[in-house]
Protein backbone atom coordinates (compact mmCIF):
# COMPACT_ATOMS: atom_id res chain seq x y z
CA UNK A 1 0.00 0.00 0.00
CA UNK A 2 2.79 2.36 0.90
CA UNK A 3 4.62 1.46 -2.26
CA UNK A 4 1.48 2.41 -4.15
CA UNK A 5 1.51 5.74 -2.44
CA UNK A 6 5.08 6.23 -3.60
CA UNK A 7 4.06 5.41 -7.13
CA UNK A 8 1.25 7.89 -7.05
CA UNK A 9 3.50 10.60 -5.73
CA UNK A 10 6.00 9.92 -8.49
CA UNK A 11 3.23 9.82 -11.06
CA UNK A 12 1.97 13.19 -9.91
CA UNK A 13 5.46 14.61 -10.21
CA UNK A 14 5.54 13.25 -13.72
CA UNK A 15 2.25 14.93 -14.49
CA UNK A 16 3.81 18.18 -13.41
CA UNK A 17 6.89 17.61 -15.56
CA UNK A 18 4.78 16.61 -18.52
CA UNK A 19 2.56 19.61 -18.17
CA UNK A 20 5.57 21.88 -17.78
CA UNK A 21 7.11 20.44 -20.91
CA UNK A 22 3.93 20.88 -22.87
CA UNK A 23 3.58 24.47 -21.73
CA UNK A 24 7.19 25.20 -22.48
CA UNK A 25 6.82 23.84 -25.96
CA UNK A 26 3.59 25.72 -26.58
CA UNK A 27 5.00 28.86 -24.97
CA UNK A 28 1.76 29.26 -23.07
CA UNK A 29 3.24 29.41 -19.62
CA UNK A 30 0.89 32.18 -18.63
CA UNK A 31 -2.21 30.08 -19.07
CA UNK A 32 -3.69 28.71 -15.89
CA UNK A 33 -2.67 25.09 -15.46
CA UNK A 34 -6.27 24.02 -15.06
CA UNK A 35 -7.13 24.94 -18.61
CA UNK A 36 -3.88 23.68 -19.90
CA UNK A 37 -4.23 20.91 -22.46
CA UNK A 38 -1.08 19.23 -21.18
CA UNK A 39 -2.41 19.07 -17.67
CA UNK A 40 -5.71 17.61 -18.71
CA UNK A 41 -4.01 15.03 -20.87
CA UNK A 42 -1.66 14.08 -18.09
CA UNK A 43 -4.47 13.72 -15.58
CA UNK A 44 -6.42 11.62 -18.03
CA UNK A 45 -3.48 9.25 -18.33
CA UNK A 46 -3.32 9.09 -14.58
CA UNK A 47 -7.05 8.72 -13.99
CA UNK A 48 -7.49 4.91 -14.11
CA UNK A 49 -4.64 4.21 -11.71
CA UNK A 50 -5.71 7.05 -9.48
CA UNK A 51 -9.27 5.78 -9.37
CA UNK A 52 -8.16 2.37 -8.16
CA UNK A 53 -5.74 3.89 -5.70
CA UNK A 54 -8.46 6.03 -4.23
CA UNK A 55 -10.88 3.14 -4.12
CA UNK A 56 -8.55 0.56 -2.65
CA UNK A 57 -5.90 2.56 -0.85
CA UNK A 58 -6.94 6.04 0.13
CA UNK A 59 -10.57 5.41 0.90
CA UNK A 60 -9.71 2.53 3.28
CA UNK A 61 -7.03 4.71 4.88
CA UNK A 62 -9.50 7.46 5.60
CA UNK A 63 -12.05 4.91 6.75
CA UNK A 64 -9.57 3.39 9.19
CA UNK A 65 -8.68 6.81 10.53
CA UNK A 66 -12.37 7.59 11.02
CA UNK A 67 -13.01 4.25 12.68
CA UNK A 68 -10.20 4.78 15.15
CA UNK A 69 -12.36 7.34 16.94
CA UNK A 70 -15.21 4.89 17.56
CA UNK A 71 -15.67 1.90 19.75
CA UNK A 72 -18.13 -0.92 19.26
CA UNK A 73 -17.66 -3.09 22.28
CA UNK A 74 -17.70 -6.75 21.38
CA UNK A 75 -21.26 -8.05 21.51
CA UNK A 76 -22.69 -4.53 21.89
CA UNK A 77 -25.30 -3.16 19.55
CA UNK A 78 -24.01 0.35 19.06
CA UNK A 79 -20.86 2.03 17.90
CA UNK A 80 -19.89 4.89 20.22
CA UNK A 81 -17.81 7.93 19.48
CA UNK A 82 -14.95 7.84 21.96
CA UNK A 83 -12.60 10.49 20.51
CA UNK A 84 -9.05 9.51 21.45
CA UNK A 85 -9.96 6.86 23.96
CA UNK A 86 -8.85 4.06 21.64
CA UNK A 87 -5.44 5.72 21.46
CA UNK A 88 -5.31 5.94 25.23
CA UNK A 89 -6.27 2.27 25.52
CA UNK A 90 -3.66 1.34 22.93
CA UNK A 91 -0.81 3.08 24.71
CA UNK A 92 -1.98 1.65 28.02
CA UNK A 93 -1.76 -1.85 26.53
CA UNK A 94 1.51 -3.45 27.65
CA UNK A 95 1.28 -5.88 24.76
CA UNK A 96 1.27 -3.01 22.29
CA UNK A 97 4.24 -1.34 23.93
CA UNK A 98 6.06 -4.67 23.88
CA UNK A 99 5.19 -5.13 20.21
CA UNK A 100 6.51 -1.66 19.36
CA UNK A 101 9.72 -2.30 21.30
CA UNK A 102 10.13 -5.68 19.65
CA UNK A 103 9.50 -4.13 16.26
CA UNK A 104 12.19 -1.52 16.86
CA UNK A 105 14.74 -4.13 17.91
CA UNK A 106 13.64 -6.26 14.99
CA UNK A 107 13.95 -3.32 12.58
CA UNK A 108 17.42 -2.27 13.68
CA UNK A 109 18.59 -5.84 14.00
CA UNK A 110 17.42 -6.97 10.58
CA UNK A 111 17.62 -3.92 8.31
CA UNK A 112 21.22 -3.02 9.04
CA UNK A 113 22.72 -6.53 9.01
CA UNK A 114 20.80 -7.68 5.94
CA UNK A 115 21.81 -4.55 4.03
CA UNK A 116 25.43 -4.85 5.10
CA UNK A 117 25.50 -8.55 4.26
CA UNK A 118 23.65 -8.00 0.97
CA UNK A 119 26.14 -5.29 0.11
CA UNK A 120 29.03 -7.53 1.05
CA UNK A 121 27.69 -10.33 -1.14
CA UNK A 122 27.22 -7.89 -3.99
CA UNK A 123 30.75 -6.53 -3.63
CA UNK A 124 32.28 -9.96 -3.86
CA UNK A 125 29.98 -11.17 -6.62
CA UNK A 126 29.73 -8.22 -8.99
CA UNK A 127 31.91 -9.55 -11.76
CA UNK A 128 30.11 -12.43 -13.33
CA UNK A 129 31.64 -15.79 -13.87
CA UNK A 130 29.92 -19.11 -13.97
CA UNK A 131 30.95 -19.84 -10.41
CA UNK A 132 29.85 -16.46 -9.13
CA UNK A 133 26.54 -16.67 -10.98
CA UNK A 134 25.95 -19.96 -9.28
CA UNK A 135 26.73 -18.52 -5.84
CA UNK A 136 24.52 -15.55 -6.63
CA UNK A 137 21.56 -17.80 -7.42
CA UNK A 138 22.19 -19.71 -4.22
CA UNK A 139 22.20 -16.51 -2.21
CA UNK A 140 19.12 -15.26 -3.97
CA UNK A 141 17.25 -18.50 -3.42
CA UNK A 142 15.88 -17.61 0.04
CA UNK A 143 14.11 -14.64 -1.51
CA UNK A 144 12.17 -16.94 -3.80
CA UNK A 145 10.92 -19.04 -0.92
CA UNK A 146 7.66 -17.67 0.49
CA UNK A 147 8.11 -16.45 4.05
CA UNK A 148 5.59 -19.01 5.29
CA UNK A 149 7.57 -21.84 3.74
CA UNK A 150 10.85 -20.41 4.97
CA UNK A 151 9.42 -20.21 8.47
CA UNK A 152 8.25 -23.82 8.29
CA UNK A 153 11.73 -24.81 7.13
CA UNK A 154 13.46 -22.89 9.89
CA UNK A 155 11.29 -24.51 12.53
CA UNK A 156 13.26 -27.63 11.75
CA UNK A 157 16.55 -25.80 11.65
CA UNK A 158 15.81 -24.34 15.07
CA UNK A 159 14.37 -27.56 16.50
CA UNK A 160 16.06 -27.87 19.90
CA UNK A 161 18.47 -30.76 20.17
CA UNK A 162 17.84 -32.43 16.86
CA UNK A 163 17.44 -29.47 14.51
CA UNK A 164 20.15 -28.70 11.95
CA UNK A 165 21.53 -25.82 13.95
CA UNK A 166 21.83 -27.69 17.23
CA UNK A 167 23.10 -30.76 15.42
CA UNK A 168 26.09 -28.88 14.08
CA UNK A 169 26.57 -26.78 17.19
CA UNK A 170 26.66 -29.99 19.20
CA UNK A 171 29.63 -31.09 17.11
CA UNK A 172 31.40 -27.96 18.28
CA UNK A 173 30.50 -28.91 21.82
CA UNK A 174 27.80 -26.25 22.20
CA UNK A 175 24.77 -27.25 24.26
CA UNK A 176 21.35 -27.46 22.72
CA UNK A 177 19.49 -24.15 22.68
CA UNK A 178 15.78 -23.50 22.63
CA UNK A 179 15.94 -21.08 19.75
CA UNK A 180 12.23 -20.32 19.54
CA UNK A 181 11.17 -21.28 23.05
CA UNK A 182 13.46 -19.04 25.06
CA UNK A 183 11.92 -15.58 25.37
CA UNK A 184 15.39 -14.04 25.44
CA UNK A 185 16.42 -15.66 22.17
CA UNK A 186 13.25 -16.16 20.12
CA UNK A 187 13.13 -12.66 18.60
CA UNK A 188 16.76 -12.93 17.55
CA UNK A 189 16.07 -16.30 15.97
CA UNK A 190 13.34 -14.69 13.89
CA UNK A 191 15.74 -11.90 13.01
CA UNK A 192 18.33 -14.35 11.74
CA UNK A 193 15.68 -15.95 9.54
CA UNK A 194 14.71 -12.52 8.22
CA UNK A 195 18.32 -11.62 7.47
CA UNK A 196 18.82 -14.97 5.74
CA UNK A 197 15.73 -14.35 3.69
CA UNK A 198 16.37 -10.74 2.72
CA UNK A 199 20.12 -10.32 2.36
CA UNK A 200 20.07 -12.06 -1.03
CA UNK A 201 17.24 -9.86 -2.20
CA UNK A 202 19.10 -6.69 -1.28
CA UNK A 203 22.24 -8.15 -2.84
CA UNK A 204 20.44 -8.12 -6.16
CA UNK A 205 19.77 -4.38 -5.96
CA UNK A 206 23.35 -3.73 -4.95
CA UNK A 207 24.72 -5.85 -7.79
CA UNK A 208 22.63 -3.84 -10.22
CA UNK A 209 23.81 -0.64 -8.59
CA UNK A 210 27.45 -1.69 -8.64
CA UNK A 211 27.28 -2.72 -12.25
CA UNK A 212 26.00 0.76 -13.02
CA UNK A 213 29.21 2.31 -11.70
CA UNK A 214 31.68 2.74 -14.58
CA UNK A 215 34.94 0.84 -14.32
CA UNK A 216 36.83 4.06 -15.13
CA UNK A 217 35.82 5.56 -11.78
CA UNK A 218 37.79 2.82 -10.10
CA UNK A 219 40.65 3.06 -12.54
CA UNK A 220 40.88 6.78 -12.03
CA UNK A 221 40.82 6.22 -8.28
CA UNK A 222 43.59 3.61 -8.57
CA UNK A 223 45.79 6.06 -10.41
CA UNK A 224 44.97 8.85 -7.99
CA UNK A 225 46.27 6.65 -5.25
CA UNK A 226 43.20 5.01 -3.74
CA UNK A 227 43.48 1.66 -2.00
CA UNK A 228 40.64 -0.86 -1.63
CA UNK A 229 39.10 0.90 1.33
CA UNK A 230 39.42 4.36 -0.17
CA UNK A 231 37.74 3.21 -3.38
CA UNK A 232 34.90 1.84 -1.29
CA UNK A 233 34.71 5.00 0.78
CA UNK A 234 35.06 7.64 -1.92
CA UNK A 235 33.75 5.93 -5.04
CA UNK A 236 31.49 2.97 -4.37
CA UNK A 237 29.51 4.19 -1.40
CA UNK A 238 28.71 7.70 -2.68
CA UNK A 239 27.83 6.47 -6.14
CA UNK A 240 25.69 3.74 -4.63
CA UNK A 241 23.82 6.15 -2.38
CA UNK A 242 20.57 6.14 -4.38
CA UNK A 243 20.53 2.34 -4.42
CA UNK A 244 21.26 2.19 -0.72
CA UNK A 245 18.49 4.64 0.10
CA UNK A 246 16.07 2.60 -1.95
CA UNK A 247 17.10 -0.68 -0.36
CA UNK A 248 16.97 0.87 3.09
CA UNK A 249 13.38 1.92 2.59
CA UNK A 250 12.35 -1.39 1.09
CA UNK A 251 13.92 -3.10 4.08
CA UNK A 252 12.17 -0.83 6.55
CA UNK A 253 8.80 -1.36 4.94
CA UNK A 254 9.51 -5.07 4.93
CA UNK A 255 10.01 -5.01 8.67
CA UNK A 256 6.56 -3.60 9.29
CA UNK A 257 4.64 -5.56 6.70
CA UNK A 258 5.87 -9.14 7.06
CA UNK A 259 4.88 -11.28 10.03
CA UNK A 260 4.19 -14.64 8.40
CA UNK A 261 7.07 -16.19 10.30
CA UNK A 262 5.69 -14.95 13.61
CA UNK A 263 2.40 -16.69 12.87
CA UNK A 264 4.05 -19.89 11.75
CA UNK A 265 6.83 -20.10 14.29
CA UNK A 266 5.97 -18.46 17.58
CA UNK A 267 2.48 -16.90 17.59
CA UNK A 268 4.16 -13.88 19.14
CA UNK A 269 5.39 -15.88 22.11
CA UNK A 270 6.91 -16.95 24.31
CA UNK A 271 5.62 -14.31 26.68
CA UNK A 272 4.99 -11.86 23.85
CA UNK A 273 8.71 -11.75 23.11
CA UNK A 274 8.25 -12.09 19.37
CA UNK A 275 5.09 -10.07 18.99
CA UNK A 276 5.41 -7.47 16.24
CA UNK A 277 3.03 -4.60 15.59
CA UNK A 278 1.38 -6.15 12.56
CA UNK A 279 0.81 -9.42 14.39
CA UNK A 280 -0.54 -7.44 17.32
CA UNK A 281 -3.03 -5.85 14.93
CA UNK A 282 -3.96 -9.23 13.50
CA UNK A 283 -4.47 -10.70 16.96
CA UNK A 284 -6.64 -7.86 18.14
CA UNK A 285 -8.72 -7.79 15.00
CA UNK A 286 -9.30 -11.49 14.62
CA UNK A 287 -8.56 -13.29 17.84
CA UNK A 288 -9.16 -10.80 20.63
CA UNK A 289 -12.27 -9.22 19.13
CA UNK A 290 -10.93 -5.74 19.76
CA UNK A 291 -11.33 -4.21 16.34
CA UNK A 292 -11.05 -0.67 17.65
CA UNK A 293 -7.61 -1.27 19.07
CA UNK A 294 -6.52 -3.00 15.88
CA UNK A 295 -7.82 -0.07 13.87
CA UNK A 296 -6.01 2.44 16.02
CA UNK A 297 -2.74 0.55 15.82
CA UNK A 298 -3.23 0.38 12.06
CA UNK A 299 -3.59 4.15 11.85
CA UNK A 300 -0.32 4.59 13.71
CA UNK A 301 1.59 2.09 11.59
CA UNK A 302 0.20 3.58 8.40
CA UNK A 303 1.49 6.92 9.57
CA UNK A 304 4.93 5.48 10.22
CA UNK A 305 4.98 3.78 6.83
CA UNK A 306 3.86 6.95 5.08
CA UNK A 307 6.64 8.85 6.77
CA UNK A 308 9.15 6.25 5.60
CA UNK A 309 7.75 6.36 2.07
CA UNK A 310 7.95 10.10 1.71
CA UNK A 311 11.39 10.16 3.22
CA UNK A 312 12.37 7.56 0.67
CA UNK A 313 11.04 9.50 -2.29
CA UNK A 314 13.02 12.49 -1.17
CA UNK A 315 16.23 10.55 -1.07
CA UNK A 316 15.48 8.80 -4.32
CA UNK A 317 14.86 12.11 -6.03
CA UNK A 318 18.11 13.40 -4.66
CA UNK A 319 19.74 10.28 -6.05
CA UNK A 320 18.51 11.00 -9.55
CA UNK A 321 20.84 14.00 -9.75
CA UNK A 322 23.81 11.70 -9.99
CA UNK A 323 22.74 10.50 -13.37
CA UNK A 324 23.63 13.11 -15.89
Amino acid sequence: MMVDACHLWLAMRKVKYMADNVTARGKKRLLKPFYNAGYIKAWLYLAPALLFLILFTYYPMVQVLWDSFFLKEYGAEKKLFVAFDNYRRLFADEDFITAVKNNLIYAIGTVIPSIVIGFGFALSLTQSSRFKNCIRSLLFFPTLVPLVAAAALWIFIYFPGIGLLDYYLAKLGIQSTDWLGDPDIALYSLMILTIWKNAGFYMLFFIAGLQGIGEEYYEAASLEGAGWWQKLRYVTLPLLAPTSAFVFVIALIHVFTHVDHVIVMTLGGPMGSTNLVLYYIYQNAHEFNDLAKATTATVLSVMVLLAISFFSIRTMERGIHYES
Binding site: E216, S222, L223, Y322
Partner: peptide, 29 residues
Protein backbone atom coordinates in the same frame (compact mmCIF):
# COMPACT_ATOMS: atom_id res chain seq x y z
CA UNK B 1 50.98 -0.53 -8.18
CA UNK B 2 49.30 2.02 -10.47
CA UNK B 3 49.21 4.63 -7.74
CA UNK B 4 52.96 4.36 -7.22
CA UNK B 5 53.93 4.75 -10.85
CA UNK B 6 53.60 8.53 -10.58
CA UNK B 7 51.44 8.87 -13.62
CA UNK B 8 48.15 10.64 -14.26
CA UNK B 9 45.56 9.58 -16.74
CA UNK B 10 42.75 11.33 -18.52
CA UNK B 11 39.94 9.05 -19.56
CA UNK B 12 37.78 9.22 -22.63
CA UNK B 13 34.72 10.13 -20.56
CA UNK B 14 36.86 11.94 -17.95
CA UNK B 15 35.70 9.73 -15.03
CA UNK B 16 34.86 12.76 -12.96
CA UNK B 17 33.09 11.88 -9.71
CA UNK B 18 29.50 13.11 -9.93
CA UNK B 19 29.16 13.45 -6.17
CA UNK B 20 32.20 15.70 -5.81
CA UNK B 21 32.56 19.36 -6.69
CA UNK B 22 35.12 20.50 -9.24
CA UNK B 23 37.50 21.40 -6.43
CA UNK B 24 37.05 17.99 -4.80
CA UNK B 25 37.57 16.23 -8.10
CA UNK B 26 40.78 18.12 -8.81
CA UNK B 27 42.07 17.67 -5.28
CA UNK B 28 41.03 14.01 -4.99
CA UNK B 29 44.49 12.59 -5.59
Amino acid sequence: APKDRNIAMIFQNYALYPHMTVAENIGFG
